[in-house]
Amino acid sequence: MRLAYWTTRDYVFAAMTSVALLVVASIVIPFTLPLSIPGLANAVNGLFGSFFLVIGLIRLRKPGSLLLITGIYSLICLSVSLVVFGFVLIGGVFSELICSLVFRGYRGRLAPALGAVLYEMGMFPAAMVLSFFFMPERYKDIAPWIFVVAELAIFTTSSIGALAGLKVANELSRAGKLALES
């Protein structure tokens, strides 16, 4: 019998990582969304999202892992909003492409951290393009430099989240819950 690329455990892990992303988003987003500041929700969510993504990528390691997790997450977001589905998927495809081409997977520490940060950073422009397409009046008066500041904020928060995720991955390994590569 041909061995499947993804095992049951891989699918379940990706699903549970998506659940954690959803739990955190459900707590964080009601506070940030009403403020209508471009990138604020992404920056705050990026702090937590990259944390869980890094742990997920360290565990799964294979090429396609980021797309598996974000693909599941985006399909769940489809039940909330078409725009959210769109930008989550685009962010996932964008970062997966780069990481697969450059690192060919998520071994080590740099690739998972970079993958998580690129995903968070990739979602924001996609979100802006989709939102501008559907709601042009919302963004037409906003100066472009605000988007640059927002992207920098997302980079900062998601990097912090990724570093925290790497630290917790060590702790998970010490507790016998995660096998790290030597």
Partner: peptide, 12 residues
């Protein structure tokens, strides 16, 4: 965050 990370692994 840390307990939730452990929760993800335990649930998995």
């Amino acid at each position: 965050l840390v307990p939730l990370a452990f929760c993800v692994i335990d649930y998995t």
